[in-house]
Simulated assay, not measured.
Amino acid sequence: MNLQYLKAFFVTVKVNSISKAAKILHLTQPGLSMQIQSLEKELQVNLLKRSNKGVELTEAGKIVFDYANTILSLQENIERDLENLKTEKKQLLIGSCKALGEYALPCSIYVFKQDNKDLDINLEISNTDEVVENLLDRTVNIGLINDKVNNKELKVEKITSDKLLLVTSLPVVKDKISIDEITKLPLIFREKGSGTRRNILKTLKKHNITYEDLNIVYLLNSMEAIKTSVISGKGISFIPELSIKRELRDKTLKVIEIEGLDIVTNFYLAYRKDHDLTPHEVEFINFIKSPNRGFC
């Protein structure tokens, strides 16, 4: 399969426009169309339905598009790793959920870097589902997530736990509430794909409270944005304790105790089973797992 033609097809689908894709790939529109047609001829299937509204995937196109993402990622990773080999550059590619990546992990990476000054460390922060996707498409080699995933391609092990605290800056809220009273609070929630969100909903479900029962003010895809919103009085939220230690100490935020409800979130380390860990990746994993050194 011609990878150049596959990339032409992939980019066209991503931007939903042959003209936009041609500009991105520095091709003429006829040249781009010819590459996609050549790919269709090679695979003996029609991949796209073309219209004035853009392009639409055929059933065969959907299959090829899913594989194209992985294949093109692999190609980029091969080129990157070979280039690093030429320059003798050592890289540590980490993906992290936002609860760890926005707070605890940067300090940990700084400490680890002091003993590994020749190591280039790249941290990609996203939600748990996206970290898993990045692991599977080989964009990162080590993932830190806050929801245990069952995927036969990954090795997953628990590294630490943290409390999820219901916090507010509003003076009118009671210090202690019943479980049922949660449904009346103006809550700020994480987006779909967040391990924190899943953990909260899983725990509330045990008490017959669903997402639809909650009074969600709005969704945010950043724990830092949620914390800022809560501090400014725009709502109330469940936030990992490690993310708000300073705010609790300074009394910028206060905890609302919920009778009979404690939510503990577990954090996990994940990597692909078929990936041969390099010595510095093994060293980082042992560093993160160490209770005395892992998280600042």
Rank of each mutant, 00 (worst) to 15 (best):
P171Q: 12
N141S: 11
G143Y: 02
S161M: 09
D137L: 14
K155D: 15
E157W: 05
E157F: 12
V131Q: 10
E153P: 00
D180K: 07
N146L: 01
V149G: 00
I177R: 00
K148F: 09
I145W: 01
V140H: 07
D162I: 01
N134V: 05
K176C: 05
K163I: 02
D147I: 14
K158H: 10
T160H: 00
D129N: 10
D147T: 15
V167W: 15
S169E: 08
D129M: 04
L144T: 14
T160Q: 00
L170S: 08
V132S: 04
R138G: 02
G143W: 00
I142R: 06
K174H: 07
K163H: 15
T168G: 04
T160Y: 01
N146C: 12
K148L: 08
L136M: 11
E130W: 00
V140L: 12
I159K: 01
V172Y: 06
L136I: 13
V172E: 09
I142W: 00
L164Q: 09
V172F: 11
I142Q: 11
L165A: 05
I145Y: 01
I159G: 02
S161F: 13
G143D: 14
K163D: 11
S161G: 10
E133L: 10
V173W: 05
N150F: 00
T160G: 01
K174M: 11
L170W: 03
N150Y: 01
L135P: 01
D129Y: 04
L154R: 07
V132M: 08
D137H: 06
I159M: 05
E153A: 06
V132W: 00
V149T: 09
K155G: 07
I145Q: 08
T168D: 08
S178I: 03
T168Y: 03
E181S: 12
D147W: 08
T160D: 00
D175G: 13
R138Y: 07
K148G: 00
N141D: 15
T139L: 15
N151G: 07
N150S: 04
N134G: 15
L136Q: 13
L136H: 07
I145D: 08
N134K: 12
D180Y: 08
K152S: 08
I159Y: 01
L144K: 11
V172W: 05
L165M: 09
G143A: 09
V149R: 03
I179F: 04
L170P: 06
D147H: 12
K158I: 14
V140S: 14
V173E: 06
S169T: 15
E153W: 00
L154I: 06
L170T: 04
K174T: 04
E133C: 05
V167H: 09
L164Y: 13
D137F: 09
I142S: 15
E130A: 14
I145G: 05
E153L: 02
I179G: 02
I177M: 04
L166D: 07
P171K: 14
V140I: 11
N146Y: 02
N146E: 12
S178D: 01
T139C: 10
G143V: 02
K158G: 05
E157H: 07
N146S: 10
